[in-house]
Structures are given as C-alpha cells and as structure tokens.
Design a protein around this nucleic acid. Structure first.
Lengths: 344, 344
DNA sequence: GTGAAAGCGCTAACAC
DNA sequence: GTGTTAGCGCTTTCAC
C-alpha cells in the first residue's frame, strides 16, 4: 500500500506537504500539482484509519434506525446520505430492529470507532440510552423520536398539526361521523396525532352544536395491520358506524381497508385518511389520501445539524419541527362521491 | 478516554499484558482477573481505530446491496449480521440504489477504511468492478449475482431448479396451459428461472404428446408491477388463455394479480405461482404459493465464506448454490378447486 | 509469562 | 510555505 511517505519521497517534498495538499493547507500551486500527479501515478489514497487515529475522529457518521424495512426510514436514510455527501462524510447504517440491546451495541460501536457523529431514531423513548455517546462528547442528533432525558439536538415531525389537517380535510369533504384509529396509548407520535384529531373535532362539534365526540369513535391499536383491521371491525359494528376514519399510521390503514372490504364497503363512501404513506400504495384502490411525512427532509435536516456540531459550532440545543403535508386523493372524496376526483 | 496505558498503570502491569488479556494471549489467571477488574472500573474499551491501524485491518465488514427497500436484501442482511456476530465482526450496510457510481464509491471507502472484507450483491453484472478490492487482496464474496470477470467466492440461488419445481407443481395441481411471465431478456436470474420452466414444460408436452409449447405463453416484462400487469392482460387476451401462470418475480406477481382481478377471475381458478415472496403478502387473497428464496441463508453462507478468507484459509475459489423451497398455498390449488387447501 | 520498545500512516505544532 | 518531529492507542516482536 502506498503511503504518504512514498508520495513525499517520489515527489521530493515532505510528508507534511503531501498531507496539506490533500487537506487544503497552503502549498504553492506548482508543488501541489506535482504532488497530486505523483499521488495519482502511485495510486495513493489516504489511509482513513491512520487519519482517524490521529484526528481522534473518523469521517463516518452512524445512522441508527429501528426498522430498515420501513420505507419511512429508508427515505430518511437517503436524506442523511445526500446531505452527508456534501462534506465528504460517509454514512453507515445500523438497523436495531426495534431492539434496545442491539441498539446499545451499535451505540458502543459508534463510540469505539470514533465516528464523527450519530443520528439516531431511537428504538424506545424510555429505554434508549445515549449516555455512551454523550459521555464522550460525540455529536448526536435524535430524529423522529427524542429519548427522554437526552440532551441532544432533535428533528421531529409536527404530528399534532398533521392530525388537525387530516381531520379538517375530512370535515371539508362532507364526512361527519369521523372516527380515529390511534396507536398505542403512550406512544407520543400517536398521542400527538390523536390530540390534533380531538382538537378539530371538538371545535367542529361546538360550532355545530353537535354535542360531544362519541368516545367509542377513538380506538387504540398497536400500529400493525391486524390491529387496524380489528379496530375497524369494531367501528363498523357500532350502532352509528363512522362515515370516515383517520388512521394514525400506515400499516393500520392497510388493516382498516381490509376490514372495510370484508364489510362490503369501500372508500370514498367511508372516507379513509392515512397518516404516513402506505407501502405498496399503488396496490390500493382507490388511491389513498395521506398525511405525508417529511421523511427525506427529516434526514437531511438532521444531517445538517450534526455537521454543524461536528464542525464545532457552539449553540444551544435545538429542536427542529417539520410539518406534514396533506396529500388528497380519492379515498376522501366525500360520502356521496362516486370515486371520482377529490374536491378539497 | 481511558487507554490501555491507563489500565496498565492502574493494574500495575504493562500495556502488553492488558492487550494480551483482551486478545486471548497467555496471562496468569490472577493477573488477568486484576486487569479485567480495573478495566471495568475505568470503563475501558479498546480503541478500534488504533487496533485497526496496527493490525492493518478493521473488525468491520462491509455489506453492499443494491436496494435496501427490498425485503429480499434486508433478510439477506440479517443473515450476514447474525453470522458476523459470532466472530465479533460488525457489519456496515451500504445501499447502492442500483447505481454503479455509488457502488464504486462504497467500494473505495471499504478499501480506504481497510475493512476486513466485503460482501457485495452487485448493482450490475457487467459494470460492477471489484478490482479496487481485489487489488488490495481484500476478501470479497459475491452474493446473488457474480460480476463477470471477478475472481471471488460466491453464493448464488439455484434459479433454474426453482423454475422447474414451480412448473412441476403447477402441472401436478392439474393446470395444463401454463404460461410464464419472465423478467427482462438477458437478466441471468430470470433467464435461469425461465429455463427451468421450459425444461419441465417440454418434458411434459413430450410425454403427453401435447405438441410444442406455445411461444406466446412466454412473456418478458421488466420485473415491476406494471410490467406484470400488462403481461397478464396480454395472456388473458389470447384465444386460448393460460389456466396458470408462473411469474418470475414478486413485484410482477402483484401486477398479474391486479390484471386477473380486473378480468373478473382469481386464483386458484387461474393458478398463480410467484418466484420470491410478495411484499405485504398478508394483503393478498387467496394466500399465494411461492418459490421461497433462501435470502437469510444466502447472507449467512456468504458471511461464513468471508470469515474463512479473513482468517486466511487458503482454498480454491468456490461458488455455493442454494436451493429454493416451494411454498404451496391456495393460489395453486388447481383449476377446479374452490379456494380450499392445496392438495400438492 | 512478562515488559520494553518499535512502529502502523497520518496530522499538527513548531521552527525556519 | 515548507520540513522536522512527536505522537494518536494499539499489537507484537524480542529479550528476559
């Protein structure tokens, strides 16, 4: 393997000069050119391991995510990668599989490998422990969820706003008996979405003297397909079944659609609005209205914050909140629509 | 950060001894115990960067895959990870997004980081160039696809056998006019699957004096949903439409199912057999018969071969071929079945 | 079995 | 601007 010394000798300069050429130090143009040329001839590329040891920091950032198969996180990962490439950082992906132990191992590796920084979408808000990294002063940015007690920058989604927007849209489309299939009680992402739903429904009912929100219109499930399915079944079995449903995540939406089909009805007669894009959305008929999550931007923004920290910028901890975007398609065209275009 | 020297001083031994304790060298039990204890007290963990520099090799292997969103590759990744953990290697995942340039960058990083080895599912059989790694003598294992001209160990799938098994099963179930929706001409995975189909069909037709295989029963598409859909439409429009179809990949199967539904028919009346698991298979009714790909084992086996190479085992290059497994479900119960259990 | 010492390839402080 | 030099934390001879 060619080293910096080989290049220096061949080019008739000192190793330091070669290093400067490759790191933007001050070198006269003529010498720099000569160095670059010999380096190319010798096929030299700097040894990143030696550099990391010397600099006490690698030019790699870790991205720790709980579920590599979830399109939300892969899109987020792409945002991180694209942003990182701008400053020649490479990204290594670690999949924790929602497992806190596995996550801890990866956090330790990140520390031991002296990665430049870590972006983490925590496996658990309560049990994820970032102290391994914080102890070493390693830059960390939390994304999507911020573990309790962690003093780190964060990039989050405005879930409550998303819930409000979704519910308001359903009302505008003419639905009145709007139910909500929420996630597990205590999951903050779901709680916030539900809060948005409640706020808008309450306002609407007050304005129209519609009474109180029937408590049975809110059902908690487990964020998975089966949970959505049985929640929807329960809703359809009510004396006054809802004419629309706001589902707090993508997988539960899939289940809700199954239940609707089993019951012989379909959107948009019963409106369905999904929080987050549904995987293989193309397979779903009619096309689904969704609250789009800014997954790519989440990653991009997190990487930006991280790079500021890596560069040593001193500033107070900061939390960036990104908004969702309502994507109106046919599944919420209104209770009387014939599956045509939306009219929102 | 605590270093090996800190531990040595605190334990009253030399750094060399501490190193030996952590690397399985010969140390008296009593001293080893003392070292381990002080190390724990001081919160010491070996600096992997320094170790890599000294050993000229990192304890990380790279896994380079073309599509992180494809369940096939995530499952493969899990196989690699599980195998790697047995020898304390960590895995970093690199997603090339089917982009040969991006792939090249990752290969260079793997070289510069002096990773212990690389497992690569090539983005392209023709244009993927592993010479960066081969030049440095870095252990490499190709998986799923072997780039032409590369002298590396490989772990592949027996696609032809899978095609044979699938076709034979359809015949046994009572289907006679069996079509095949293949992938793009020239894609070796698809070609092999198609070859299996052809071989079995030819034998069957010869035995039963059934004449030649109608050429219009073989359609090439692009491995994507839309391609499968229009291929299936074409098949259904034939004067003698097939009564079963063998689809050469999962996404095209999704399209084929859509086309069948549009045409007012469904499996198992028209048999459908998919090569590879269909994403969100739970959404598909009736349950699909599939040729299961050994994705996890592919990863596990590749990691095993790689570790042998890393350990320095000298042996000729080797290609391991893993078999597929037929998973019979209801979509191939036979042309007369009522959607009941399979009878294969 | 143990310790002293060299050195992996690089960068940064310092002297010129 | 440039070269000399020290040293990042570790493993591994080589003596003992």
């Amino acid at each position: 393997m060619t080293t910096i010394n080989d290049v220096a000798r061949a080019a008739g300069v000192s190793p330091a000069t070669v290093s400067r050429v490759f790191n933007g130090g001050r070198v006269t143009a003529e010498r720099a050119e000569r160095v670059r040329k010999t380096a190319a001839e010798l096929g030299f590329s700097p040894n990143r391991v030696a550099r990391s040891l010397r600099m006490q920091r690698a030019s790699v950032i870790g991205l720790i995510i709980p579920d590599i198969e979830n399109p939300f996180f892969t899109s987020l990962a792409r945002g991180v990668e694209d942003a990182a490439q701008q400053t020649n950082l490479s990204v290594v992906l670690c999949n924790t599989d929602e497992d806190v132990d596995k996550e801890r191992r990866y956090l330790e590796i990140a520390a031991a490998e002296q990665m430049a920084g870590v972006i983490v979408a925590a496996a658990s808000r309560n049990r994820t422990d970032l102290s391994v990294l914080e102890g070493r002063g390693m830059p960390v940015v939390a994304v999507d969820r911020r573990p309790r007690g962690a003093s780190v920058d964060a990039v989050m989604v405005d879930n409550q706003h998303g819930g409000e927007e979704a519910t308001a849209h359903l009302l505008r489309s003419g639905y009145r008996r709007i139910a909500c299939i929420a996630g597990p009680e205590g999951a903050s992402t779901s709680d916030d979405r539900l809060a948005g739903y409640r706020a808008v429904m309450r306002d609407h009912l007050r304005e129209t003297d519609g009474g109180a929100l029937p408590p049975e219109y809110v059902r908690h499930a487990d964020f998975r397909v089966e949970g959505g399915r049985s929640a929807m079944r329960d809703l359809l079995a009510l004396p006054a079944p809802p004419d629309a449903v706001f589902v707090a995540n993508n997988l539960m939406t899939v289940g809700a659609l199954q239940a609707l089909r089993e019951a012989g009805t379909e959107p948009p007669r019963t409106g369905v609005l999904s929080f987050g894009d549904v995987p293989w959305a193309s397979l779903v008929r009619p096309p689904l209205s969704t609250v789009q999550l800014p997954s790519y931007d989440l990653g991009w923004t997190a990487a930006g914050l991280l790079q500021e920290r890596i560069a040593g910028t001193e500033r107070p901890l900061q939390t960036v909140v990104l908004r969702t975007a309502l994507q109106v398609r046919e599944s919420t065209s209104g209770p009387g629509a014939q599956g045509g275009a939306a009219r929102d």
